[in-house]
């Protein structure tokens, strides 16, 4: 599903954010991407949905070489990748329903499809009761649920989460991870970048560790620390 070959990223500032990374993530896998702050987790995720391009190396997502993708093909790549953020990135002036429907609107989907799929996604994340609330009326955990609903509303085969629990308390974090696990079990490849040790240890999933832009560990049923 995801295949990186000798991927390096050097920013114009000279910072070596990724250094010669090679890895493969299979269909429907659940993977934790761990490492301290500045290790290159976010940069790696950005390579996958082409928010940024690698300086060298090959990034293949869903059989497509992302780096060589024609710019007008990028939107179609993105419709196959859901992205969840630490700061949720919800649109403040739109309701929960509108925020989720937004992701379908921009694909030009017909109105009836938009409604059906948005409601399904909101039901899956347990936010059906709050459809007409605005983001500032929600708790952090609820915002993250809406953000996840927006990411999966298109039924993408891949879901990327960048520190999804960074702003949440431990119990809520655990709930969010359960939700991501549930989505993974519905045939979605899930990659979670995090430095939440207790969750990684508890979930016992594959763990890929970065340090200073280098891949230093790739372990099945791993723990946060070796």
């Amino acid at each position: 599903m995801i295949e990186l070959t000798n991927v390096s990223k050097t920013f114009s500032s000279g910072i070596d954010a990724l250094h010669n990374i090679s890895l493969t993530i299979g269909k429907e896998e659940f993977v934790f991407l761990v490492g301290s702050s500045g290790a290159g987790k976010t940069t790696l995720l950005k390579m996958l949905y082409r928010e940024d391009l690698p300086t060298s190396g090959k990034v293949i997502v869903d059989r497509v070489n992302v780096a060589e993708l024609n710019p007008d093909q990028v939107p179609y790549l993105r419709r196959n990748i859901g992205v969840v953020f630490q700061d949720f990135k919800l649109l403040p002036k739109r309701t929960v329903y509108e925020n989720v429907a937004f992701a379908l609107r921009v694909t030009g989907a017909p109105r009836s499809t938009i409604r059906r799929k948005a409601m399904q996604a909101l039901e899956l994340v347990g936010m059906l009761r709050r459809v007409s609330s605005f983001p500032n009326e929600l708790s952090g955990g609820e915002k993250q649920r809406v953000c996840i609903a927006r990411a999966i509303v298109n039924n993408p085969p891949i879901l990327l989460a960048d520190e999804p629990t960074g702003n949440l308390d431990p119990t809520t974090s655990w709930d969010i991870l359960q939700l991501l696990d549930k989505i993974n079990k519905r045939n979605t490849t899930v990659v979670v970048a995090t430095h939440n040790k207790s969750i990684v240890d508890e979930m016992k999933k594959r763990v890929i560790e970065l340090d200073g832009g280098r891949l230093i560990r790739d372990q099945q049923l791993g723990m946060y620390n070796v």
Partner: peptide, 17 residues
């Protein structure tokens, strides 16, 4: 800007934006 960022993120074409 955030709206545009989100639109692009969820796969809106430039024309649509």
């Amino acid at each position: 800007e955030t709206d545009i960022y989100i639109m692009k993120l969820v796969g809106a074409t430039n024309t649509f934006v």
